[in-house]
Design a protein around this nucleic acid. Structure first.
Lengths: 228, 228, 228, 228
DNA sequence: TATGAATGAGTGTTCATTCAT
DNA sequence: TATGAATGAACACTCATTCAT
């Protein structure tokens, strides 16, 4: 699913988008808008949502200020579109990859890998997602929050599968949020020149997280020497 | 160490260096400025650094706009002071608590507990620290970055102690940054009404992290059945 | 005379003078444009000429922004067309009704009634006429001003007839403009639910005005007690 | 009461107007703001409220755009201040002049004269008052509407006095609103070079209106020939 | 010590209008 | 005949900051 696609989709209710009968997507049209969103993503990443001005976007995209408003209702809509696209894409990919796997550990590793792979390839989007978490208001904010909750629930579900399979007892919430912290934090430190790639990172973080969960949550055996 | 103290200290070079060495510190004065920083912290937390205006701060503190500039060079200095104070305080506390402990695992648990305890009590500061990571420019930015590196190195050191003690082999960098992710992320989700307190959280995260590190990094024993 | 007609008429010189004399008028076409003017009238009334945007008009009429410009040169032309139509219509009706009456008082009552009746039925147009009095520039402004002067002169003529018939001496100008004030002001206060209809209003205002003029202007008789 | 005075008064709740202990009005300060209001009045008159830009006001007053906002919350507040001042002043003057007169006719003539005199001397204010009748929103709009109703009621009261004194029967509402129309309309036509001054105009309009009311409302005598 | 006054530069957004199709 | 795309100029308003007092 391309940025253009999601953009077009959300563009529907805006203005009087006629959208001709035959519905052949005008790719030249869509590409233009997708471009804008890509640039916007970068600018929001560099300067933050508040710090970025529509004039910055105008400059970056080569589109006039008023032209921007021809396509997008407001600065907030740009943020919304970016966040929605990002979340939708990552969830969609995750679902596809999860289809083939049944082993609970494997499935969690898929989750981690999917997350890291996407965000290492789209670091800007990642920061925009996490930094501008509470920026969107009302309807748009609620919509993104709902998608985010979906993502959370998927991960929680995976963890519960694992728990059932191995007879573990632990707080799913804490585990999920700890995992989210680990994998989300990368945008603050990952340097492609010195740090491992998504595959390697996913394996290492998977090891760390899964061993942590499994051993920490294993019902104490009688002869376990000491607390840890 | 009070906010007032750090503030005063950094205020020294500013403008009319009236504050000669021998002078008894005017605590009424200091308290006022500490108040300003506390309010500023809250406002930056609520609106972000860019989103917060000096007028917002003026309103929140009850000090006139010009009054703010009488004490603080610029909006950026306020951010700098807050970040410096936060980091300095947390590191200082950590060092004190570390003094009494020698067991490597115990020391890492102290690190985690210290971090969570401070940030659960100062959630605003936390967000201001992590969100406005790259906001400070030049000298001030470099100074904060240096303190941050200190903090990172302390944590890395603790991990290396553990590795040596237990004969583990793992990437310290990845482990530290994963841990940072886990503990820093709390400001995005911690709800005092439903989530555990710092002690409990520190114990659980400590379990998760330490089991993860130790078991994931343990040199494979010959008879280890399976990958995990 | 329909709005469409006047519109068409003034449209003649615009752009591609396609509309050759012999052509049968396309009424479907005309009705569309008349509709636009009716809507425009309402929007100008609600928001004022300056406050109304072409986008408002586009929305209200369902015609695209560019479509509006296809038929009308500019926003100013829309105002011009509305004002011209309104004035032309009211004068035309007045002339018809005046044809049958000869009594000077009767003729003034016809003037008042015609004015009130039209404007009570077209309150929007009325406000657009009086509020946007000086908005039109150059040629268009002059043309409307000329029509307005016509209307003024007709009324002045009626008053002079009355003066001659009854041997009155008074300032026609002041009387006309006082009358205009009385009857034009209604758009600011008339509430169809509590105020009388055009017939009743015309009678009452006619009484007030005519008694006022006649008694105030009657050459003093020797035994008139006092000024009033 | 000077423009400065009313301005100062309404300025009180704005921002943190400290307003020193002794309360000696700083006339230099007030004069500046009164100046701004006078200029604003003129600009609103020339271009209408919507058509006038804050930049126009900035240019006209010689004060920077941001400076304007230092003193006035918004463009709307400027309009409010002008309207409030105008209405308050004219009502205050009216009340003073009414104090000495007891004859009902005389009192109505005072009303007319007061109105015309003020508005011939302040034609801008007049247009701003009548044209921007519905511009103010919410609280400010309600406040001005209340003052306006006061003014209406005073006039209605005067007419009822006259009715009682002379045993007339007529719609007070219609009479008041007709009178308002007559006297308010002058701003559309009065040309000081060719038209009479306030005194003369007030006398003539007074004659017209009073004769109109009295003769139109006089209970029909048996031998009155015909309707008029 | 502390503030009201003042501002140049910038904000997000809307304007009337043009033009290729 | 009719419209989507596009824009330069303007809009009301806010910004961080300075300065005289």
């Amino acid at each position: 699913m391309s940025l253009a696609a999601i953009e077009t989709q959300s563009q529907e209710p805006v203005k009087n988008g006629r959208k001709s009968a035959s519905e052949v997507p005008d790719t030249r049209f869509d590409r233009r808008l997708a471009d804008v969103l890509t640039h916007a993503s970068r600018i929001f990443w560099e300067k933050g949502y508040e710090g970025a001005s529509m004039r910055d976007l105008s400059r970056a995209t080569g589109m006039s200020l008023a032209g921007l408003y021809h396509y997008f209702e407001s600065k907030e809509e740009l943020l919304y579109l970016i966040q929605k696209h990002t979340f939708t894409t990552i969830i969609e990919r995750l679902r596809q990859r999860l289809e083939d796997a049944t082993d609970p550990e494997e499935r969690i590793r898929i989750f981690i890998h999917n997350h890291l792979e996407y965000f290492l390839a789209n670091k800007e989007a990642m920061k925009v997602l996490t930094h501008e978490d509470e920026t969107l208001k009302n309807g748009r904010g609620a919509e993104i929050a709902a998608i985010k909750r979906d993502y959370y629930r998927i991960c929680l579900g995976l963890l519960e599968e694992l728990g059932r399979a191995q007879g573990l007892q632990f707080s799913g919430r804490l585990a999920v949020l700890s995992l989210f912290g680990m994998v989300n934090w990368i945008y603050t430190w990952h340097n492609p020149r010195i740090d491992a790639d998504a595959n390697s990172l996913a394996r290492q973080m998977g090891d760390l997280f899964l061993h942590g969960v499994i051993h920490a949550a294993k019902p104490k055996r009688k002869n376990s020497k000491r607390k840890l």
